[in-house]
Amino acid sequence: MLGRSILPLGMIGLVFSAYCAGAEFDCGNRPIKLAFYEFGLLYEQGKGIDKDLIEELAKRTHCRFETQLMPRARIWSDLASGALDMSVSGIETPERNQFAWFAPYLSIKNYALVDTNLAKSVNSPAAFLASKEAQFGVVRSFKHGAEQDAFLGQMRAMQRVQDSPDVDALYNKLKEHRVSGIFSQPVVFRRNLGKFGLEKYVAIQDWTPNEKGLPHGLILAKSAFTEEQANAWRAQINALKADGTLKKIYLRYLPESEVTQLLDF
């Protein structure tokens, strides 16, 4: 756990305000090793929702954070091995529950981004399935939601899904018309539609109006945090939601209609 004695590590990235000995919040006796990953408005080039959230938590808890940017797959591996203490915007699964606690702070839903030419006749999963030649793009290993993943299962059975290694590769395929549709989230497409010059060439459609977004949260390695400590971090997140701080952070990046959905976790 963070309270145990370990050799100090070199500081990587941004270090937040100093830990106050004897502070009420249990920060442990060393900096918390935290990794960000780049994902649209959540974090890109040192800015984003996740960065603002961690800065606010550092201010309130007086904990020190030793941060770095890492690929998402490496983050999960290091959390499982104990090489990393914490990360951001993670989705809870039974497998991940074996090595991590989760403290949700936003709910993210995937929308369908469909080529405008196809969107004239397609506005649902069934209509896309019926469009025999249309290919759909995904990022390999991404989870989208129960209904959306069921649709992708049908598409895979028809060999009409193209996998991409990351989000940028996925958007490039959409731009180059190699796929006619993708799933993406407001925190990503509000950034990437402009980045890839796609604003006028895709229609944003909600194919699952009755399905809520997937909770994303702070990820705390069980090798570093006890359940009691994890509950204390959850309480900090809940306080940020209750006093309106989370909403203020999200409104810096997204319109209020989409912020309301983010807060539904």
Rank of each mutant, 00 (worst) to 15 (best):
G46I: 08
A221K: 08
I32P: 07
A242P: 00
P186N: 01
R191W: 13
S87N: 07
A157W: 05
E256F: 08
T245K: 13
A23V: 08
S107R: 09
L9N: 07
I49Q: 06
N231M: 09
Q236D: 00
E227L: 12
E199G: 03
A35V: 04
F151A: 04
Y19N: 11
A83K: 15
E92Y: 06
A35C: 08
T245L: 00
P255M: 00
G153M: 06
I49T: 07
Q229M: 13
V167K: 05
I182K: 06
R72W: 15
M70H: 06
E176Y: 12
E44N: 14
G153F: 10
L106M: 15
I108A: 09
A134V: 15
L113K: 02
E66S: 14
P8W: 05
Y250F: 15
D85I: 02
W76R: 06
H216I: 04
L214S: 08
L7C: 11
S124K: 12
A80R: 15
E55T: 11
T93L: 08
K143E: 01
F142W: 14
A230Y: 11
A239V: 12
L174H: 02
K132A: 13
L193M: 14
V139M: 03
K51P: 07
V187K: 00
S164M: 10
E147R: 13
E44Y: 10
A235G: 12
R60E: 09
L14E: 12
V202S: 00
R234Q: 14
Q68I: 09
V187H: 07
F151V: 04
C63V: 09
A150Y: 09
N210A: 14
G10N: 11
L79R: 08
N192Y: 15
S164K: 12
F196R: 03
L34A: 11
L240W: 01
V259F: 08
G213N: 04
G3L: 07
I219D: 05
L129K: 05
Q261N: 09
E133K: 15
M1W: 10
F39Q: 12
S223P: 10
D264L: 09
M155D: 01
F142A: 03
P104I: 02
I49E: 06
F225Y: 12
L174K: 03
K222W: 00
K59L: 11
V179M: 05
L246D: 02
